[in-house]
Design a protein around this nucleic acid. Sequence first.
DNA 1: CTCTAGATTCTCATTATTGTGAACTCAGTA
DNA 2: TACTGAGTTCACAATAATGAGAATCTAGAG
Lengths: 107, 107
Amino acid sequence: MARKQFHSNASKFLYNRFVAGDPKREEEYEEAVINAEIARKIYDLRTKAGLTQQQLAVRVGTSKSAICRLEDADYEGHSLSILKRVAAALDKRVEIRFMPSKRLKTA
Amino acid sequence: MARKQFHSNASKFLYNRFVAGDPKREEEYEEAVINAEIARKIYDLRTKAGLTQQQLAVRVGTSKSAICRLEDADYEGHSLSILKRVAAALDKRVEIRFMPSKRLKTA
DNA sequence: CTCTAGATTCTCATTATTGTGAACTCAGTA
DNA sequence: TACTGAGTTCACAATAATGAGAATCTAGAG
């Protein structure tokens, strides 16, 4: 039926793809991680709800290609508005937190 | 010096302004709460860092009016991209979580 | 009162995200 | 093989957020 695809593999290669010892790249890496995590969370929530992309699209009020875009780990354009709509469609709510940066302060 | 304004009062009146016993309004209320919380968090992080809106604007790479807009509790247009930029400017990172909805399931 | 820094509000051009349909891949199945 | 459902990718119009400057407001200092 459904394809598994790279949803769980993407994060495996992210670090190699970005950081590779360059401290300046760590910021981009963190952003990429955030994007990949959001994509994975949406995918998890949708599949655990037993919905296809098409079905979730109807609930959210958009198209399946838009849902697919949200679940793309490389997508960088996540907006809060669409995340809130997706969350509401899955009976969830979005929480935003500002956490201490994982990066070491400028030594 | 700085004005205190409604940053801490806003949330006081949000519930009265929205819900008022109407269950259908609760969704809008939750969204408004999220927006207000983001605004307050940015305000708190900025002031605790001892920065003016102008100074934060420079760090973020935008204008002071844009920062002011982010700290407006009524602003509904928060995007993830600007939140990440603000977080990075304050040596923080943004974390997104999908939480169980506070609303009671359809009884 | 005047001056100033900080903050707020407004407008609008620029930029970014969303909505959409179509074409495509893939896996399963008849 | 052909067919189907699910997912992916692309392009582009429609919509929404950002960037910026100017005007305004407020509180405190002088």
